[in-house]
Design a protein around this nucleic acid. Structure first.
Lengths: 396, 396
DNA sequence: CCCGACTCTCAAAGCGCTTTGATAGCGCGC
DNA sequence: GCGCGCTATCAAAGCGCTTTGAGAGTCGGG
C-alpha cells in the first residue's frame, strides 16, 4: 500500500506528472485515504498549526492565540511565534478556520445572465474590481456564481445552506424585486447595488441618484433649446431605468413639454440598439434633435447612426449619456467626448463592499444606505438645437 | 447568559434588526460561544447532517452514503433519505465537507489590475461567464481575487496555503511568464488561457491561434491591394500580442513588403488609443490605407478618427479587427460592421474550465492543450485599397 | 440448525482550526 | 507557610462532514 503512495508522490515531485506514466494510476484508483495521504505529503510545503506548534514546542492553543492577537500571550512568545509563522509561510487552512469560527470570510456575488440575450452586464467587471479591492484589504474572499436569471433564488438559498459566504451583494435590482424579501427571509446579510422601488422591507443599499442625474441631463438639453429629446433607456423592469425615465419626464414636464412615446425606447443596452433606434427615430417624420442614452455603449451606437446619416454629433444632433466610467471604455482621455452624467461603478463597488462587511461584522447595525450624486460633465456631443428659431417660434 | 441570547434571537427574528435597539448589543459584546449559539439557533432553517439523520432515525454515516451515491445503501433507504433531504432543503456545509474531503470544490481566478492604468481587461466578464457556466454545472465554486499586478505571486501562494481552491486559471500570460514556474513549484493545478512563448516547463493551456488569425487578416488586406497596413496591437509583453505581430509580419514578408515601424503601435487596448494612433498615422506623410487592430474597442477609436478626418471606413480606409465576441459589445447584429477575426471568449472560458476540472479530478492525466482557430468574417469595414492603381503601378 | 457470505447500518476517528475551562508557576501579604 | 490573585500555558471539546473498520441482520447451503 505504502509503495503505491510513494510511487505517486515520487511522480508528483518529479514535476512531469503530466506525461503519461502508465502504472501510476494510484492517484485515481487509490482509496480516499490514499489520496489524502498523498496530498498531505505532497503539500507538505504548507504547514499546519500542529506542525508549527510542535516546531516551537508550544501548544496549538498558544500559537493560535499568539497569531490572532489575543492578550493572554507573553509578548516574547508572540514575537517568537510570529517570526516562525512568517519563516514557514504559515497560513491557516481557510476551511478549518471557517468551520471553527462559523465565518466564511467570503462574500458572494450572483451574476445573472439574461437568458434571452446571454448578456453579461458590462459594469460587472468594474464593480467587482472595486469590491475586490475592499475584500482583499479586509481579508475576505469573493465568490462568484454565474446563473441564468431564473435560477437566482435557488442560488441564494444554496449559498445560505452551503454556508460558504457571509453575505451577498445584490446586483441590478428590479422594481419590487423579489430577491429582497427572499434574502431577508433566509437571513443572509446583503446590500443592494441600486434600489428597489416598492420594496416593503427595509434593506441596505448604495445607489446613484439616477432620477436627479437624468433630470439634470434633460434640463441641459432643454436649456440648449432642444425640444424633441429621445430617451434610449435600459430595460424598464430594472429599477434604475425607471428612475432615469422619471427624471427625464419630470424635466420635460417642468418645461411644459409632453413626452412623446415615439421618442422613448427601453431595451438591453447594446451598441446595436442605440444604432437601430437612432436610425429609426431620425428617419421618422419628427426626428429628435437630441438623444439621452442610458449607457456609453448605446451612445456609441447612436453616434454610428449619425455618421451613417451624414449628421454631425454636437451640431446636428446632441447626445448626453450616462457614463459608468468603465476602465476599458473611457469617455475620451483628457477632454470628454460625450456630455455625460458620470458616476464611477468601481468606486461604488468599493463602497458597497465596505458597507456590507460593516454590517456582517456588526449585525446590530441599522440598515445602511448611501445615495451618490452623478457628476455632469460637458463634452463635445452637445450643442444648441439646430433649428431653434424655427421650432420655438414666438413661444420661447 | 441565556436571556441575552434569547433577546438577541428575538431581535433577529423580529426582522427589523436593522433599527437601532439600544440594549441589544449582545451580538457584539457576547462571547464567541454566544455568537455561535445565536447563529446556530437563528440559522436553524438550514439543517445539518446530524439533525437530518436524527429525523430519519438513521446514522450520519448511512445518510451521508445515501446522499453521496455509495453502493452499500439499500435503495429504499436511499430514496427515503433523498426525499427527506429534498424536503428539508438540506445542503451539506461546504466548509465541513471540504475539510473532510480535502477538496475545496472551488477554482480561483486571479484578476490582475494593471497598476499603471487601473484597467480591468474587458474580456474577463465574458470569460468568467463562460467558465462560471461550467463550474455551476460541475458543482464548483468560483473564487475571484482582484490584485495589483505586482502582488500576484503572493496571491497564488496564499491560495495554495489557505487551501480554498483546487486549481486556478491563469489569465493574460506574458512572454516567458513567471507565474508558470511558480504555480508548478507550489503544486497548484492550473490551466493557462493563452500560451507563454519561451516557457520551459510543460503546462496545460487553451489558446486561439493568434498568429494564424493575424496572418490571414493581413493577407486579406494585401489581397485587397493595401500596402500600407497599420497594426494597432495590445501591449507586447502580452504573449498574444507577440503572436499577432508575428502573424502580421509574416504576411507582409510573404508579400515582399517590409514592415514599417511607424505603422506599428503597442499599447493598452482602449478606444482612446485607437483614436490617437489613427489620427497621428493618417496625418503623417505616408498614411496607411488600412488598420489591423487587436480589439474591437481599438477599432471603435479608429473609426472615430476616420469620422473626424472626413474619411469613410471601408472606402478610404479599411479596418480589420480581432473580435472576442463580447456579449455586450457585438460587432453588429445581423451583418458584421467590422471585418474581423473572431473567437468567442465565452466559449474559451467554458472549455478552459472543463479542462482544468478534468485535470483536477485526475491528476495523472497528461497536460492538456487546445488551439482554437479564429474565424474570418467579412464586414463593411474593408474594401479595395483606394489608390491601388497609382501605388501598385505595373508591379501588381 | 448452524455457519459463512452478503447486505445494510453504525459508532468513532479524523480533517485543522478556535475556544473553553483548567492548571502550573510565581510573587505577595498576613 | 498558606492562600490569593495573576499570568502564561495547556489539554480537550467541538465545528459538520467523510470514511474506516466493525457489527447486526438475513439468507441459503450443507
Amino acid at each position: 500500500m505504502l509503495s503505491i503512495i510513494d510511487a505517486a508522490i515520487a511522480m508528483l515531485q518529479s514535476r512531469n506528472f503530466a506525461t503519461h506514466l502508465a502504472p501510476q494510476d494510484a492517484l485515481t484508483r487509490g482509496t480516499p485515504k490514499d489520496r489524502l495521504e498523498i496530498s498531505k505529503r505532497f503539500e507538505c510545503l504548507a504547514m499546519n498549526l500542529k506542525q508549527l506548534s510542535e516546531t516551537l514546542g508550544l501548544s496549538q492553543t498558544t500559537v493560535s492565540r499568539a497569531l490572532n492577537g489575543y492578550p493572554e500571550v507573553n509578548e516574547d512568545t508572540r514575537r517568537r511565534v510570529m517570526e516562525a509563522a512568517r519563516r514557514h509561510d504559515y497560513r491557516p487552512n481557510t476551511r478549518a478556520k471557517s468551520l471553527a469560527t462559523g465565518r466564511a470570510m467570503a462574500i458572494g456575488h450572483v451574476i445573472p445572465i439574461s437568458t434571452k440575450h446571454e448578456i453579461v452586464n458590462p459594469i460587472f467587471a468594474d464593480f467587482i474590481a472595486g469590491a475586490g479591492e475592499t475584500y482583499t484589504k479586509m481579508g475576505y474572499d469573493m465568490l462568484l456564481s454565474v446563473v441564468p436569471d431564473a435560477d437566482q433564488a435557488r442560488c441564494y438559498r444554496e449559498m445560505k445552506a452551503k454556508r460558504n459566504v457571509d453575505g451577498v451583494i445584490l446586483h441590478g435590482p428590479h422594481f419590487d424585486d423579489s430577491r429582497i424579501p427572499l434574502l431577508t427571509e433566509i437571513g443572509l446579510p446583503f446590500i443592494v447595488h441600486g434600489r428597489s422601488t416598492n420594496a416593503t422591507l427595509p434593506y441596505s443599499w448604495l445607489d446613484v441618484n439616477s432620477r436627479r442625474a437624468f433630470e439634470r441631463a434633460t434640463g441641459l438639453l432643454l436649456d440648449l433649446g432642444h425640444r424633441r429629446i429621445a430617451l434610449l433607456n435600459g430595460l424598464e423592469h430594472m429599477d434604475f431605468a425607471l428612475r432615469r425615465r422619471a427624471g427625464y419626464s419630470a424635466a420635460l414636464q417642468g418645461a411644459g413639454i409632453e413626452a412623446d412615446p415615439a421618442l422613448m425606447r427601453s431595451e438591453e443596452m447594446t451598441e446595436g440598439y442605440g444604432h437601430r433606434a437612432a436610425i429609426q427615430m431620425l428617419r421618422a417624420d419628427a426626428p429628435p434633435t437630441a438623444f439621452l442614452t442610458s449607457s456609453l455603449i448605446i451612445a456609441l451606437g447612436v453616434r454610428r447612426a449619425l455618421e451613417e446619416l451624414g449628421l454631425k454629433m454636437g451640431r446636428d444632433v446632441s447626445i448626453v449619456t450616462h457614463d459608468d466610467e468603465l476602465s476599458y471604455l473611457r469617455n475620451g482621455e483628457d477632454i470628454p467626448i460625450y456630455t455625460a452624467v458620470r458616476s464611477s461603478v468601481r468606486e461604488a463597488g468599493r463602497m458597497a463592499a465596505e458597507m456590507l462587511i460593516r454590517r456582517i461584522t456588526d449585525p446590530t447595525l441599522p440598515h445602511l444606505d448611501r445615495l451618490l450624486e452623478a457628476e455632469l460633465t460637458i463634452g463635445q456631443s452637445t450643442g444648441p438645437a439646430p433649428n431653434r428659431g424655427a421650432r420655438q417660434g414666438g413661444a420661447g
